[in-house]
Design a protein around this nucleic acid. Structure first.
Lengths: 331, 331
DNA sequence: CTGTTAGCGCTTTCAC
DNA sequence: GTGAAAGCGCTAACAG
């Protein structure tokens, strides 16, 4: 266990240098010596010490991924996309959760930096914007996904949130709903804002006044959706259509609606966003906007690694994937 | 960006060695110099190069986690448990999926080994047993979770599969079901076998012959559950109670049953295993055996790190957590 | 208290 | 083709 090139060199009666070159398929090694070295390496069960290599090359072939919650099926699928493609390209992924919380996010960035990852893939929390400072000090490539700082010139891959929200809203309008609620997240989050815009755009082109839309900011857990929806019902607010920022929020809302004895979609229609695996299996199969989740992870990872390997132009790359409305029972 | 102790040494007019000791809070440094070094380090935005440290210490403060599928809510929660506790203890987690597939698993072990992780946490695929060879060659601590090699003297944390399956089966029997099906996974998997035993035990104590139990081995994806259940229905097999190896399988089975126009639990009662987040939200809220998923991850990580830090006895540690039957509508 | 020397495992000049 | 020497950033002896 733990043979080094030194051991091989000794056994083969050559210099460590020659061993190194033989092992790395460099030229300037005679076939015979190469053969011998390889042979001995195998016999000694040699495995190169990548720490040493990394110390020299400055590359770890490791990427960091920061998501808000790996437990959210939406992120789980993206993570899978990242992991698959990273590994296929010879990289490994360190996974961190930010828990929708600035402090944890900052710490994660710090830790990844210390671990000398070659680059970072992340969905920023965006409750406050301090992460931008930390990131500025991080001199390696970063690719954002889902959410992105809107001023900076950065790489990111998102889905077309405006389009997605527009499709969803149009559906609600098409089935005759006029008292709409957008179950929104914190408006510091780019995707939250973008979806709101899409929603408003749809209302405008339908000739509906902005009074017909009620924006209910909340947090992003299932419970938050439940709580807010319940409050709306308790207050007897006139609501016949709900657009939730995410499927998770939608599931929470669905529970609240059903618990109150109302019917979906008869009394209130509900559309989610993301199309998580369980959307079709819910008590009321959920109409929702499908994001290509795996592909988001895949493309983000490919973009980052392309950058690392220099096969991308200088300018920031922005990939915007097309979402798609999936009709089921809830709207 | 990228200041080294050499830079600090130069600026502070001391040796690198002194800098090192000042930075690491070693004794034998005068308060004044320590002060000065720290000051300069801060000014230079110094961040230690852990690659270099690791090269010397042989420790990376990195653990590897191998799961079959991070997308499965069951594993997602375990991963979260691992990540939280690892990070709290100053470790970082590299995540790999084995995709229920021997080759990917072997590759993952290999890669983690090359990356010099300090230890590995894993759910073995257990389709074939080659992983044991690779693991034998891995001279660092390993903690298994969920599934475990049953011969070897290894650390693991699981839930009491026999007990869980017994509780589930007893429930089915208690509500009068006599034609039971165990929607099983490959029997090379330890937990699959253990649950089968629990199931059989329950039948024995109820005085039911083994003819009353039909074991349907399948694979572990939702689709597999769907397919097998459908086949049973199409063949008009007399089935009035189903115990699924996992909630995922149960969801697939539920779809098949409902699609066939049968009622749950009236026509066939269904109980799952795991209690994933969505179990209560399904079309028919799922009765299932709850595993303490987060705690499995947490305990596994703690056990591994304890080992790494030498605070565990030599003998293998086996942690068996208690499952619990959660009654909902499906059985 | 502080500096010098050596070395972790590997690669990279640069002679020979 | 091959080897000797130097160095990646850091720590661990040991002298002084």
């Amino acid at each position: 266990v733990g043979a080094t090139i030194k051991d091989i060199a000794r056994a083969a009666k050559v210099s460590t240098n020659t061993v190194s070159r033989a092992l790395n398929n460099k030229p300037d090694v005679s076939p015979k010596t190469r053969e011998k070295v390889l042979e001995i390496a195998r016999k000694l069960n040699y495995s190169p010490n990548y720490l040493a290599k990394s110390l020299i090359s400055g590359q770890t072939r490791t990427v960091g991924a920061i998501v808000t919650d790996n437990t959210n099926p939406f992120y789980a699928r993206i993570i899978k996309g990242i992991e698959d493609t990273a590994r296929a390209r010879g990289y490994v992924m360190i996974l961190c959760n930010s828990n929708e919380n600035n402090a944890d996010e900052l710490e994660a960035i710090q830790v990844l930096q210390e671990k000398r990852v070659d680059g970072i893939l992340m969905t920023p929390v965006q409750r406050d914007m301090r992460y931008l400072d930390l990131l500025r000090r991080f001199d390696k490539p970063i690719v954002f996904f889902n959410r992105h700082p809107d001023d900076a010139a950065v790489d990111y891959v998102i889905n077309d949130n405006q389009l997605g929200a527009r499709l969803a809203t149009e559906r609600l309008i098409a089935i005759g709903r006029r008292n709409l609620v957008y179950l929104s997240g914190p408006e510091t989050i780019s995707s939250v804002r973008e979806r709101l815009e899409g929603c408003r755009a749809a209302m405008r082109t339908a000739g509906l006044s902005s009074d017909s839309l009620r924006v209910e900011p909340t947090d992003l857990m299932m419970e938050d959706g439940h709580r807010v929806m319940r409050r709306l019902i308790d207050a007897a607010s006139p609501v016949d259509g709900v657009l939730a920022y995410s499927d998770l929020l939608a599931v929470g809302a669905m529970r609240a609606i059903l618990e109150a004895g109302m019917r979906i979609p008869a009394d209130v229609a509900l559309v989610g966003y993301d199309d998580i695996e369980f959307a079709p299996m819910l008590e009321v199969p959920l109409t929702t906007v499908r994001q290509p989740r795996y592909r988001i992870g895949e493309q983000a990872a490919n973009l980052l690694i392309d950058r690392l390997e220099g096969s991308r132009p200088e300018e920031p790359v922005r990939i915007v994937l097309k979402p798609e409305l999936v009709l089921r029972s809830s709207a």
